[in-house]
Design a protein around this nucleic acid. Structure first.
Length: 807
RNA sequence: GCCGAAGUGGUGGAAUGGUAUACACGCACGCCUUAAGAGCGUGUCCCGCUUAGCGAGAUGUGGGUUCGAGUCCCGCCUUCGGCACCA
């Protein structure tokens, strides 16, 4: 009997949907819940490819496994539907983003469904649906009320020709990706979320969660907490001073100049008449330099002397004050203390302009001579030429110097973070409108919550015209009232960063149809936090933002405190799947493999098994069509095994042992996302049965073990061959017995000096170490290997090996 | 430059510090077929020998710890990912 995957897969998919096999019922127990979540996809115009599917198959397997273990599993799917690509597509083709996005969603959804994924679609969400973004807007208002959303001026990438704001990804080498015009920085009033208020907790919370260490490290690095000190330098012949923040005050005796950023408000005050003209020109030039150019490391250092000097209180030395664009306004205080001997950037600057270079750290080569080459610039070591710090390590010197400066009143300790507040304003159309109204009397006021959602107007021309597209809607500004005083006001015309949507969607999933609340306390308490979260790619920021929102809701009591203040307890990141040519899948290389290329020919079960068998879940791996064919052969063998109950085994110890070993292995492997080895052990089990025969129990177990991986064929087998009650996916996962999983016959390795020299078969009976040593000495090869030497030591590991050491 | 991950057959990969190369892919030969395909079987790291076997070597590279290292420690090389003038 031939297995017709197309027919059978369709048949069971329909049956599962019709009987609600994966639907959650409210009767299920509260304690045994699991929330298994995929990072929801952006439904882009390019179709889904097999790479997207890797994570989805992984969560599907674990979800099915958990259900079979008696858990009620929330496993939802939805759409990160707002975003720039749809808008750009609209600009190019005139097709409204709403239309193109929803067409894409249909394609994605069909592809997920034919893959046999067990999502409970009754929880589906779409971030571009007013039902969803109403609560995104509501969240904004909660943050605003707590002072965590605020407006301030900030620079954006601006294309003067297209008259539009560009996202960082649209800026290629400092030029607009569409028209190649040089991108400039433009200051606009924009909304921010104060994520920095949570910086410390975003670090400390990492300790409590089961995430890959490298992801945690990346988060820590992104937050970039650094202890430092602000040192005040008096400016000579004036009554003001320059504040420099540094984490390395230990090298302060090596300071020879100060550099401030061109954007600093001090530039004008400090620049002496003689240098004014040159300075103005320099500052103007910096303004017109794109960020990319400014950052590119290869660029020579530039700068202009201000004519002013600051005084280093430590040694009363005069420090010339320069202006240079290698100093960034946003970092520290926007003013840097130049230590050219022990900082490469400062060295380059000093070298270019002929400034003094002092050594205060002994070189790696023990050198105490002046520093003349960049290779000699070294950040750590033993202090010299630094009075009271001499002889100390840099590490010790940092704290000594900090204390000293604080005591003298010259400095103030201050912790700085790399993390900045989150700029969420987008001068774009396809996003959630920011629910704020500007009133001449009351300033910025939120929409009253009962008036939500602020609908995204549809009558918008989204071609770039130099302002936010929504500003051109005729409807949008009609009858707008200040929620505080009732006077007419003007709506905010910017939309929110789509990261805002994706930072809380996982909460909406637990109660996606709720019309009165973002999610009920009952449902959040029942399902959250997320037990297993799977996804990769752009994750660093997403995870930080989502953790920030969660902590905020936690603090506000909008979710139950007993849920803890971390939303994702366990994280797994699937590795990329490369094309068959080992390059990243892309239209450009013509190496994209989609589920539609594979499923019609081989079926979803083959695709699922193959993807999980390719290699470790977290690792990058190339696609191979011959590998798919191999998996097709394997599944055919499985099908034949179930169809030809040729020899029936009775009471066979080997088969039973292997069965328990396989259950154990597959169970542990699924728990740890080691699907490739789970499948290989199932293969060994199948091979054994094919060669040696089967019995009823071993077949039933095989069907269950394989059910999460190949759900369609196993359902067919379960119902129509094994004649069991529908559905295998609601049956119980097999249990193994430790005792039965142990081989009764053990082959013990005999070694001499660590080299294998033979083996000893021990069956069942317990044998003592002494008896084994006796037996080993009867082995010819062992004796030959020992030869005339004396055995000095004997190492015995039960059931494993015996090693005679003669050396 | 900094941070992180990884280097094992022709290929994807397996291996709680305990017989390296499981499980697959590919290839070769054979069986079955008029034939092709499918299916099944056998073989497949490398060198040597007195060749049903035996012995030596091999997990990027050089050291170290250990009775024993792919696995742990130190140095170097290569590849991939992230960040990048962060003071």
């Amino acid at each position: 009997m031939k297995y017709k995957h197309n027919e059978i897969e369709k048949k069971w998919q329909d049956k599962w949907e019709e009987s609600g096999t994966y639907r959650l019922s409210n009767k299920l127990s509260k304690e045994k819940k699991k929330y298994v979540l995929d990072m929801f996809p952006y439904p882009s115009g390019a179709t889904m490819h097999v790479g997207h599917l890797e994570g989805y198959i992984g969560t599907d397997i674990v979800s099915r496994y958990l259900r079979m273990n008696g858990f009620s599993v929330l496993h939802p799917m939805g759409w990160d539907a707002f975003g720039l690509p749809a808008e750009n597509y609209a600009i190019k083709t005139g097709i409204h983003p709403d239309r193109s996005t929803h067409q894409n969603i249909e394609i994605f959804k069909r592809q997920l469904k034919i893959s046999g994924l067990s999502y409970d679609w009754s929880h589906e969400i779409d971030t571009s649906d007013p039902d969803f973004y109403r609560w995104t807007q509501w969240l904004f208002i909660q943050l605003f009320k707590k002072g965590l959303a605020y407006k301030k001026k900030a620079a954006v990438n601006w294309c003067p020709k297209d008259e539009t704001v560009l996202a960082n990804e649209q800026v290629i080498n400092g030029k607009c990706e569409r028209c190649d015009t040089d991108v400039v920085q433009k200051e606009l009033d924009q909304w921010f979320f104060k994520i920095t208020a949570y910086a410390d907790r975003l670090i400390s919370g990492l300790k409590r969660i089961d995430w890959p260490e490298e992801v945690k490290l990346q988060q820590k690095k992104w937050i970039g907490k650094k202890e430092g000190i602000i040192i005040k330098y008096k400016v000579e012949d004036s009554d003001f001073s320059v504040d420099c923040w540094t984490s390395r005050p230990d090298t302060n005796f090596g300071a020879t100049f100060i550099v401030i950023s061109p954007e600093s408000s001090l530039v004008n005050k400090l620049t002496k008449e003689k240098y004014k003209k040159e300075m103005q020109e320099y500052v103007r030039r910096c303004q017109n330099t794109s960020k990319d150019d400014r950052i590119s490391e290869r660029r020579e250092k530039t700068g202009v002397f201000s004519g002013s000097y600051a005084i280093n209180d430590l040694n009363h030395e005069r420090l010339p004050i320069w202006v240079s664009d290698y100093v960034l306004t946003e970092v520290g205080t926007g003013a840097v203390i130049g230590v050219p001997g022990h900082d490469k950037r400062d060295f380059e600057f000093a070298h270019t302009f002929g400034l003094l270079i002092k050594r205060v750290i002994v070189g790696k080569d023990k050198s105490r001579l002046p520093i003349t080459k960049i290779d000699q610039v070294q950040e750590e070591g033993k202090m010299i030429n630094s009075e009271f710090l001499d002889g100390f390590s840099t590490k010790k010197a940092i704290s000594k110097m900090m204390d000293y400066l604080v005591e003298k009143g010259w400095g103030k300790k201050e912790t700085h973070y790399h993390l900045r507040d989150w700029l969420i304003s987008r001068q774009r159309y396809w996003g959630a409108p920011i629910p704020m109204v500007y009133c001449e009397d009351c300033g910025w006021q939120p929409i009253s919550e009962s008036d939500l959602p602020v609908l995204l107007p549809k009558d918008v021309d989204f071609l770039p015209h130099g302002d936010s597209p929504i500003a051109r809607s005729k409807e949008f500004q009609k009858n707008v009232k200040c929620s505080k005083c009732g006077k007419s006001g003007k709506r905010e015309v910017d939309t929110m960063d789509t990261y805002v949507d994706s930072s809380w969607y996982f909460i909406r999933f637990v109660d996606s149809k709720n019309q009165d609340q973002f999610a009920s306390l009952e449902n959040t308490s029942r399902w959250l936090p997320v037990d297993i979260y799977v996804g990769g790619g752009h994750v660093v920021q997403h995870l930080l933002f989502a953790r920030f929102f969660w902590k905020f809701l936690y603090d506000e009591g909008l979710i139950d405190k007993k849920l803890g203040d971390e939303p994702f307890l366990r994280l797994k990141a699937p590795g990329w799947i490369l094309g068959p040519d080992s390059r990243k899948m892309s239209k450009r290389w013509g190496n994209v493999v989609t589920p539609d290329d594979i499923i019609p020919k081989f079926g979803a079960d083959v695709l699922r098994l193959y993807e999980m068998f390719m290699g470790p879940f977290e690792v990058v791996k190339p696609w191979s069509i011959t590998g798919v064919e191999g998996m097709d052969r394997f599944l055919k063998r499985v099908w034949n095994l179930f169809n030809s109950h040729k020899e029936i085994y009775k009471d066979d110890k080997n088969l039973q042992t292997l069965m328990h070993q396989t259950i154990k292995k597959v169970t542990n492997d699924i728990e740890n996302f080691r699907y490739n080895t789970a499948i290989s052990s199932i293969m060994q089990y199948v091979n054994f049965m094919r060669d040696n025969g089967v019995d009823n129990e071993s077949l039933r177990v095989l069907c269950k073990l394989l059910a999460p991986f190949a759900p369609h064929m196993m359902e067919e087998v379960w119902v129509n061959i094994l004649k069991e009650k529908f559905s295998v996916h609601s049956s119980f996962w097999p249990k193994y017995e430790e005792k039965l999983a142990k081989n009764s016959a053990v082959s013990l390795v005999l070694m001499v000096d660590g080299h294998p020299r033979g083996e000893l078969s021990l069956s069942g009976v317990e044998v003592s170490k002494e008896e084994i040593i006796d037996l080993a000495h009867k082995n010819e090869r062992v004796n030959k290997a020992i030869g005339q030497r004396k055995v000095k030591n004997t190492i015995y590991i039960e059931r494993k090996l015996l090693n005679f050491v003669t050396k």
